[in-house]
Simulated scan of single mutants.
Amino acid sequence: MIAPGFAGVEAQLWIWIMAMIRPGAALMAAPVFGATSVPLQVRIILSAMIGIAATNSATINLPDATLVSYTGFLFIIGEIVCGVAIGFALQIGYSAAFVAGELISNAMGLGFASMADPQSGQSSPVIGSFLSIIAVLLLLAIDGHLMLIAIIVRSYEALPPGDAMLSPRLIMDLVEFGAMLFSMGLVIALPVGAALIIVQLVMAMLARSAPQLNLFSVGIPVAVLAGIVLLAIAAPVLADGVMRAMETGLEQSEVMAGEG
């Protein structure tokens, strides 16, 4: 027999568990929180905290049938899709740093040099890993992680649980935003990449004017040295481009949360 004071505990626990689905999906798809180095227990605790806070701003009505039913399945799928869309929008803006790093690495002749990326656990060009670390620091500096949590909480008002299926317009907005990934990466890499292309052209003209010059023994060190110097000079411009890309990702996350 359940004590009278605990009669509604089970129902409240189910509400909190269902409220954890959207934040959990968003944190898994978002940068920093979704990194392989972040323990699963931390993401579960954060999801519970965000979900419990969100229940104060929105009423969560569980399906009348059991969760192992068609309505329960739609409820869970809607929450997962909504959370993944919010986190993935920010992830696209964050990934622009990887695209820029790969372009710069290829222009420097370091396309073959790769290292393990702490966010994804996969190997990536060294310049891409360098820019990704800068992106993480800038995201934390502008309180992007807190802004993402606030967007998730506010999404419960615009897209209440049980009616959180994204409209075709929002899905198309996310697809079109994904197409901007390469353009944002190109804009970030443009200052250093354009200068490195000029360096490569100069080396090509030297190779044509002096055929006895070994292009591989001279060109690669010059390109690497020029790339390092240019990265140091253009660091403020690169940081500004990365920050603008992540701010655009946060704006797209607000659109996915139904606030746009």
Rank of each mutant, 00 (worst) to 15 (best):
I2Y: 07
P4I: 11
G5M: 11
G5W: 13
G5T: 13
G5E: 07
L13G: 03
I15G: 12
I17V: 05
M18R: 04
I21A: 07
P23V: 11
G24M: 12
A29C: 09
T36A: 13
S37F: 14
S37L: 15
P39C: 01
P39Q: 00
R43Q: 13
T55H: 02
S57M: 07
T59C: 04
I60P: 06
N61G: 12
N61A: 14
L62W: 09
P63R: 00
P63E: 06
A65V: 12
T66K: 08
L67S: 02
V68L: 14
V68K: 05
T71K: 02
G72S: 01
G72D: 00
F73W: 08
F75K: 01
I76S: 06
I77C: 13
I80E: 00
V81F: 02
C82G: 03
G83W: 01
G83L: 01
I86D: 00
I86Y: 05
L90T: 07
L90Q: 04
G93P: 08
A97R: 11
F98E: 04
V99K: 09
G101I: 12
G101Q: 04
G101N: 06
E102N: 09
A107P: 02
A107H: 14
M115L: 11
D117I: 08
S120E: 12
S120D: 05
S120L: 14
G121A: 07
Q122W: 03
S123M: 15
S124V: 14
S124W: 00
P125Y: 08
P125H: 08
S132N: 12
I133S: 08
I134R: 03
A135F: 08
V136A: 11
L138H: 07
L140C: 07
D143P: 12
G144P: 03
L146P: 09
A150S: 15
A150R: 12
A158M: 09
P160R: 13
P160Y: 10
D163N: 14
L166R: 04
P168K: 11
P168M: 15
R169A: 12
L174A: 10
G178I: 13
A179P: 06
L181P: 05
S183C: 00
M184A: 11
I188W: 04
A189D: 08
L190D: 08
L190Y: 13
P191V: 13
G193R: 12
A194F: 11
A195S: 07
V199W: 03
V199Y: 03
V202M: 15
A204D: 02
R208K: 09
A210F: 05
L215I: 10
S217V: 13
I220C: 01
I220F: 04
P221T: 05
A223C: 10
A223Q: 10
A226T: 14
L230K: 01
L230F: 10
A235V: 03
P236Q: 03
P236F: 13
L238V: 15
D240Y: 08
G241H: 14
M243K: 12
M243Q: 11
M246I: 15
L250Q: 04
S253Y: 05
E259V: 10
